[in-house]
């Protein structure tokens, strides 16, 4: 464990908690893409299948449980409890256009063809694009609630910090996982224009609005 990965995991946890609290407190999931949340739940489910038979550390197991539980709780809030506030008119990204390429790519480029490894590789590729429905929804509505922009910033920052963690591990442990690094860089790049808008607008107290 290193400080970059710890900060990354904390950002990730903050993002998930912020989203849960936003929906719970405002009793509304307006502006939130349920499709992205479905993809995230799928990412954690396929990545953490080893939760029950590979023990890495207490921290690792606890965080996996938290990520799994919170992602399904978020789905419950969106599609069951506050279903009436779900903005399905704007959450229209075709996630099959993400799922199918990820399945194909994980069969073409993977470290190993064991089921657990294939699921892990699929989850890495899927996580890289899981935010697209949410970013697409924000671009369609042209704006996002400030709390939603904080959620997106924390979520983007988590994988950016993981890139620093991989650089650190490369030089200190000569550890490198090309699949995770390439997918992580793509994932972070997808947030780039959002980061720019967030820093130039939200941090100056303005609303998060895309330039018309």
């Amino acid at each position: 464990m290193n400080i970059f990965r710890l900060l990354g995991d904390i950002c990730h946890l903050v993002a998930i908690i912020v989203l849960l609290l936003k929906i719970w407190k405002t009793r509304s999931c307006a502006g939130i893409s349920g499709k992205s949340q479905i993809l995230f739940a799928l990412v954690y489910t396929t990545r953490y299948v080893d939760l029950f038979f590979t023990y890495v550390s207490l921290y690792n197991s606890v965080m996996k449980v938290i990520f799994l539980a919170s992602s399904y709780a978020t789905l419950y809030l969106i599609y069951v409890k506050f279903k009436a506030t779900y903005d399905f008119n704007h959450d229209t990204f075709r996630i099959e256009f993400l799922l199918i390429p990820c399945v194909i790519l994980s069969l073409l480029i993977t470290h190993d063809y064991s089921p657990v490894e294939l699921l892990w590789t699929f989850s890495i590729y899927l996580e890289a694009v899981a935010i697209l429905p949410q970013l697409f929804m924000v671009s369609k509505t042209g704006e996002a609630e400030t709390i939603t922009s904080h959620y997106l910033f924390a979520l983007g920052a988590y994988r950016a910090l993981y890139i620093v963690n991989w650089i650190y591990r490369y030089y200190t442990e000569s550890f490198i996982d090309g699949i995770a690094v390439v997918a992580g860089i793509i994932q972070t790049i997808l947030y780039a224009d959002f980061f720019y808008l967030y820093i130039t607008k939200v941090l100056k107290g303005k609303d998060f609005k895309l330039p018309a």
Binding site: N60, H111, D112
Partner: peptide, 10 residues
Amino acid sequence: LKPKFIKDEL
């Protein structure tokens, strides 16, 4: 392809 290694990252 690379040898397997323990996935210690989240």
